[in-house]
């Protein structure tokens, strides 16, 4: 290496040093720390005390841990596929060349700009069992078909309906995914559609055999981001009910993690939970990547 090259290398490192330091101090150091803390009892007030794998053993027998995990998996199993289907469908519709296209696109993107807390409070009122807009509409529809005697659910007040309500709420934030899908749709070569049309393919066949394969890398990206998102669900349910009431039906994994860390002062236990969460997300992501090899197409 000549002197000039070395100088260049040093300046280069210096220029990226804010990022390098940030990554080290705020990401790598906490990650290593949390791994070590997972094997300790740590209340923050006193130095951590090594307890071996006791935290992990305790977690395996912790019913609330399993309940929170089950709630999260249930939510993921519905919110993720539904969200993907909704977003792809919306993107296809918004890609249609109609007048006011940009207005529609903006309208569908707007909700994802609403802050989480505002969103939670808004839906709290929409889903209100007594005065909520959702039940008002359901009641009117029931009235129209002559089923006035049926009473709509109390949604967030009823342990059987609170999770479905959360899933409906999740659809509100599909705007981000839609934008990414729209970008992907721009990349689908027009000539493929023309060729298919000449061969007599109808709209659905074109979507099935051209559009979806061509945007499959985008779908994969969004699904992976979605997996990370649904497992980290926290702000909205925490605002709705910090205890996941009623009956912990909307008590999700990260809420229990947070409670252990900051309410029960069990940082070690919470760290162990964080690593289990990491493993779950890692496994699901790896699974998605492996499974999608067959279905994802990159160019011609």
């Amino acid at each position: 290496m000549t002197r000039g090259e070395r100088r260049n290398q040093i300046s280069g490192l210096l220029f990226i040093s804010p990022w390098l330091i940030g990554l080290g101090v705020f990401l790598i150091y906490p990650i290593v720390c949390s791994f070590c803390l997972g094997f300790t009892e740590y209340s923050v007030l006193r130095p951590p005390m090594y307890v071996g794998a006791e935290n992990y053993a305790e977690l395996m027998g912790d019913e609330v841990f399993w309940k929170a995990l089950k709630n999260t998996l249930f939510y993921a199993a519905f919110a993720l596929p539904l969200g993907t289907i909704t977003a792809v469908a919306l993107a296809l519709l918004l890609n249609a060349k109609v007048r006011g296209q940009t207005v529609y696109r903006t309208v569908f993107f707007l909700p994802s700009l609403v802050p989480m807390v505002a969103l939670a409070v808004l839906w709290l009122w929409l889903f209100n069992g007594d005065y909520g807009l959702v039940n008002y509409i359901i009641k009117s529809v029931l009235g129209l078909v002559g089923l006035q005697s049926l009473r709509p659910p109390a949604w967030l007040g009823d342990p059987n309906w609170s999770k479905p309500a959360m899933i409906v709420m999740a659809m509100w934030g599909t705007g981000h995914a839609v934008v990414i899908y729209l970008a992907g749709l721009q990349g689908v070569p027009q000539h493929l559609y023309e060729a298919a049309e000449i061969d007599g393919a109808n709209v659905f066949q074109r979507i099935r055999h051209i559009t979806l394969p061509m945007i499959s890398p985008v779908i994969r990206f969004n699904v992976i981001m979605g997996i990370i998102g649904v497992f980290n669900l926290f702000a909205v349910p925490y605002v709705l009910s910090a205890d996941g009431a009623p009956n912990r039906s909307i008590y999700f994994y990260v809420m229990y993690l947070y409670d252990n860390a900051f309410r029960h002062m069990r940082m070690g236990y919470a760290s162990a939970m964080a690593w289990i969460l990491f493993l779950i997300i890692f496994a699901l992501t790896a699974f998605t990547v492996l499974m999608s090899k067959r279905y994802v197409h990159y160019g011609e």
């Binding site: 069992g129 007594d130 005065y131 909520g132 009473r151 109390a154 949604w155 009823d158 009623p246």
Partner: peptide, 10 residues
């Protein structure tokens, strides 16, 4: 139960 849940949500 159902009456209470609805009433309380108000």
């Amino acid at each position: 139960k159902d009456n209470l849940v609805t009433f309380r949500s108000g």
